[in-house]
Lab assay of single mutants.
Amino acid sequence: LLPSFEIGAWTEDDVYCWVQQLVRKGDSSAEMSVYASLFKENNITGKRLLLLEEEDLKDMGIVSKGHIIHFKSAIEKLTHDYIN
Rank of each mutant, 00 (worst) to 15 (best):
G61K: 02
S29A: 12
D14E: 07
D81H: 08
D59T: 12
G8N: 13
P3K: 14
S37K: 15
H80T: 12
G8D: 15
E31G: 07
F71G: 00
M60A: 01
M32S: 07
K25Q: 12
G61T: 02
H67K: 05
G66V: 11
F39H: 01
G26A: 07
E6F: 02
D13H: 08
K65H: 11
I69H: 13
K25V: 08
V23C: 12
E54C: 00
I7N: 02
L52E: 03
A9V: 06
F71A: 08
I68T: 05
T45D: 14
H80S: 11
D59S: 12
G8C: 10
S28D: 13
E6W: 04
L38F: 07
Y35W: 06
A36F: 03
L57N: 01
K72V: 07
V63P: 05
Q20P: 00
E53Y: 01
G66C: 11
D27P: 13
F39E: 08
W10M: 02
Y35T: 05
E53M: 02
N84G: 12
R48E: 13
S29H: 12
D27Y: 10
S64G: 07
D56R: 01
A36S: 04
I44G: 01
F39S: 01
S37D: 15
L57Y: 07
D14K: 00
L51W: 02
V19S: 03
E54Q: 07
S28T: 13
M32K: 07
M60C: 03
L49V: 04
D59A: 12
H80C: 12
S28F: 15
A36T: 01
I62Q: 07
S28V: 11
N43P: 02
Y82Q: 12
I44M: 02
L49W: 00
T45S: 07
G66Y: 08
S37E: 12
I44K: 00
E54N: 07
K25A: 11
K65P: 14
L22F: 09
L57E: 04
E41P: 00
Q21I: 04
E55F: 02
F39M: 05
D56S: 03
K25S: 12
F39V: 02
H80Y: 07
A74H: 09
T11N: 07
L51G: 12
S28N: 14
N43K: 14
D81S: 09
A9K: 14
G26V: 10
F5K: 15
Q21M: 05
R24N: 14
G61C: 00
L38N: 13
S64D: 15
A9G: 10
L1W: 12
T79I: 12
A30V: 11
M32Y: 12
E76C: 02
Q21E: 13
D27E: 06
R24Q: 13
L2P: 09
W10Q: 09
K77L: 05
I75K: 06
S33H: 11
V63W: 10
D27W: 09
Q20I: 01
I69V: 11
M60R: 05
V63Q: 13
G8T: 14
S4V: 07
K25Y: 09
V23A: 15
E31H: 09
L52F: 03
P3C: 06
I44T: 03
L1A: 12
I7E: 04
V15I: 03
S28Y: 09
E54V: 05
S37T: 10
K65V: 10
D81E: 12
L78F: 02
C17D: 14
H67P: 00
I68S: 01
N43R: 14
I75A: 06
S64I: 11
W18P: 01
V63S: 11
A74R: 03
G26Q: 11
G8M: 13
L2G: 13
G26Y: 13
R48P: 03
E53T: 14
I69A: 14
A9H: 14
K40M: 00
L52M: 09
K40W: 04
A36Q: 03
S73K: 15
D81K: 10
S4G: 12
S37G: 10
S73G: 08
T11C: 00
T11F: 01
K72R: 09
E55I: 03
S64C: 11
T11G: 08
H67R: 04
L1F: 09
A30D: 10
L52K: 00
G61N: 03
V23Y: 08
S28W: 13
V63R: 11
W10L: 03
V19L: 07
Y82A: 12
N84W: 09
M60I: 12
P3T: 14
E41T: 07
Y82E: 09
K25E: 14
T79K: 15
A9I: 04
G8W: 09
K25P: 12
T45N: 12
G46R: 04
I68F: 01
L22C: 08
C17G: 08
S29L: 08
P3A: 10
I83V: 12
L78V: 02
N43W: 06
V15R: 00
D27R: 06
H70T: 15
I62P: 00
V63N: 12
A9Y: 10
T79L: 08
A36D: 06
W18M: 03
T11Q: 09
K40S: 01
S64Q: 14
N84A: 13
G66P: 13
K58L: 05
Q21F: 09
I62L: 02
Q20N: 10
G8V: 06
E41F: 01
I62C: 03
S37Q: 14
D56H: 01
S64Y: 02
P3R: 13
M60Q: 02
I68V: 09
Q21G: 11
Y35P: 01
V19Y: 02
A30G: 11
F5G: 15
I44P: 08
R24E: 10
